[in-house]
Design a protein around this nucleic acid. Structure first.
Lengths: 220, 220
DNA sequence: CTATGAACTGGACGTTCGTCCAAGTCAATA
DNA sequence: TATTGACTTGGACGAACGTCCAGTTCATAG
């Protein structure tokens, strides 16, 4: 969990990192509202004063926490979105990629909930708005990279800008995840995402450049 | 704003309604975290004790607030989703319906944000989980009703269960709305919703029952 | 008109919050 | 080794919170 020693006396930077990890643990378990300075200190096993020695404000701690979450999300987005290069066609490749994405989502419901909490929290606090924007930009970039890679691996090109498709995919995943958190029906969520992958596969011009005729395959 | 008189001495039921309205006003303006008992009392122009005279707990007030929000949302969903019966085809009808929905969303960003806050709040509080579920059930029912009506008005039938399409539409609208709250780009949100309406229109078997062949139109 | 009880008032209580600080501790430097 | 400064401690502070209650007001039933 911690890549720094939990013993006493550590550098400011290390202590900061530990406190952010502690804040993340508390926020993931019980939500942002329950993430108080005292609980963070308790979780980290340090005195209360240490937190304000490392962070000027609670706001500064929260900003660091939000940044950490966004960074982790960005890493998970670029590492987690694995593309099966040996897939027979684009639809299959997209389906397996989205299935992998969903697996990582389904395994961490509390983290997903925390992400929505951070977003709404940032939207209420003007000084944190940039964090929320960075969150979406990182996800957007990861999604675009995956879609571009998937298409080129199958020798196809997208019919409309990848940015649009990526944004649509992100919105859909966001909505499906939130609903899953409410109703707890993982199977339905999986089916919906799979269906969307099928839809995405229809938004491509396969192989060689042909005439401007529309494509004809629709799934589902 | 208030359909009850703001004068002193009102019945318990009326006072409850007024306090819920006041809580809604505070929560909409400054978020759930800022919605304290004192601010609600101040907003309603009553003494602090009145709130606990009308509600046993703050939890009870919040439960009533959440229920009110869900009910309002349900009403907006069934009244706001107007279908243009004179539309030439299904795609046009769906586009205008979703455009109308978006208009009501764009006009009330704070209310939308509050909806997400209520959802995450309810997900952290087990006793409010049923409220979140009701919220989605109401939206689901409204979306299903619209889709069924739209198809039958155009003499067409959906290729897959309306429940699935409605759920997909809700997830997409949810995701697009949340992203719009972050980046503030209403135009892009509108374009994405319009594109989704086009996609929906491809999920239909037009007019008469034909052979089991797939449909061929794709938009965008 | 009187009495009754629902509606309301103002203030108090204990808790928890974020913030702050004077003093203590220890590793590194001179 | 002596000293300096970064790091830590435990407790204190005021503010805001949810909760509670004894007393007051007032419409209404008898």
């Amino acid at each position: 969990m911690f890549d720094v020693a939990v013993t006493a006396r550590m550098s400011l930077a290390d202590r900061r990192a530990q406190l952010i990890d502690a804040a993340l643990a508390v926020a993931t378990a019980d939500g942002i509202a329950a993430t108080t300075v005292r609980r963070v200190a308790e979780q980290a096993g340090v005195a209360l004063g240490v937190v304000h020695y490392c962070f000027a404000d609670k706001d500064e701690l929260f900003a660091a926490l939000a940044t950490k979450i966004v960074d982790d999300l960005s890493v998970a987005g670029t590492e987690g979105l694995i593309l099966d290069e040996s897939a027979p066609d684009l639809a299959t490749a997209l389906r397996s990629a989205i299935a992998g994405l969903w697996a990582s989502i389904e395994a961490t419901p509390n983290e997903q909930l925390l992400t929505y909490e951070i977003t709404t929290y940032a939207l209420r606090d003007r000084s944190l708005r940039s964090v929320a924007i960075r969150q979406y930009e990182a996800s957007q970039a990861a999604a675009e990279a995956l879609l571009s890679l998937a298409a080129s691996a199958c020798g196809a090109t997208w019919l409309c800008p990848v940015a649009d498709l990526a944004a649509e995919a992100l919105a859909f995943v966001d909505g499906v995840t939130l609903r899953w958190l409410v109703d707890g029906d993982a199977h339905r969520a999986q089916v919906r995402l799979d269906g969307f992958a099928g839809y995405l596969a229809t938004q491509v011009k396969p192989r060689r450049r042909s005439a401007k005729k529309k494509t004809e395959r629709t799934s589902r």
